[in-house]
Design a protein around this nucleic acid. Structure first.
Lengths: 154, 154
DNA sequence: AATCATCCCATGTTATCCCAAGGTATCCCG
DNA sequence: CGGGATACCTTGGGATAACATGGGATGATT
């Protein structure tokens, strides 16, 4: 299975459009999924986006509960109620809706970050801070004692 | 399969009419279901609405009980008997009946929230509070806690 | 007869589609 | 290894269609 990888910064035009990075787009069409599924990220001021794989993950999370149970409602409200399917135009662009601008703080610049089965959408400055935090936590999780003073050569 | 998702705020006109969001309408017609089935939501001051998929979900929820048992009667009375099928006019609008206004507190503004097989109808301010609650509970259900205090830039 | 609900038409706004062109990376060939 | 041509990616603007919304006319109901 193909994975979303890397980071891509783009500009949003005057009509609110931005092109999805070509590598990401290639994965979406391979999934045979029209459009781009987006949902507010659970832990950060960002948006999770993807295709069929992302929807399947949400279905799995929700499917374990009875349709009229409180737990089902909480999950569906958070994962589906805060979601959206954006249409992709002939040039591979989406229009960034207002709710994405509000939850992420995106103005006219945007960053796409691949995280494997899906990718995230961030405001550039917010992501810069997030990246530093993620790196610090990743180091802890990997159990590395930052062994040494290895620095790039000056 | 298509699902109801996303959040759509609309205004109710002086005659009590409001247009069903176009994405939701498209799903209803794909269902080959005329009209909009509505029923008071079980746990919240909201209304559950949908087409054939909603009725099927209710059937499934009820189906686990013997057809003549008291439990079955209670559920059927609450989920089917209390329901109302609203007619949709040529422009895709419904007329919001009084019982919906009374149970939800809706005045002249309304929010449609997609939750998969059905969608909910809320008064905007009530839903704002509900959404925060649902998100908190969803985070617990997903077994994690929000680590970061990062907020979008102003 | 009056009220309410449904249907029909009209309009402003928004979003979607379509066409066109500049820039950039890639590939091929010398 | 270097230069050039090609194809893809990205960006821009204008035309078109869909949507949401408002008001008026018709017919049923009480």
């Amino acid at each position: 299975m193909q994975r979303f990888l890397g980071r891509h910064a783009k500009r949003i035009d005057s009509k609110g459009r931005v092109s999805i990075p070509a590598p990401f787009r290639a994965i979406l069409v391979a999934d045979a999924f029209e459009g781009l599924f987006c949902v507010r990220s659970l832990f950060h001021p960002a948006v999770d986006a993807g295709g069929k794989a992302l929807i399947d993950a949400i279905d799995t999370a929700i499917g374990g509960y009875d349709a009229f149970s409180p737990d089902h409602l909480d999950l569906a409200t958070t994962l589906l109620g805060a979601g959206d399917t954006l249409t992709i135009d002939g040039e591979g662009r989406i229009v960034v809706p207002d709710w994405i601008r509000e939850t992420t703080g995106i103005g006219d610049e945007i960053v796409f970050v691949g995280i494997g089965t899906r990718f995230q959408i961030w405001a550039p400055d917010v992501f810069t801070r997030r990246e530093a935090e993620a790196r610090g936590r990743a180091l802890q999780l990997m159990g590395t004692r930052a062994s040494s003073k290895m620095e790039p050569a000056p």
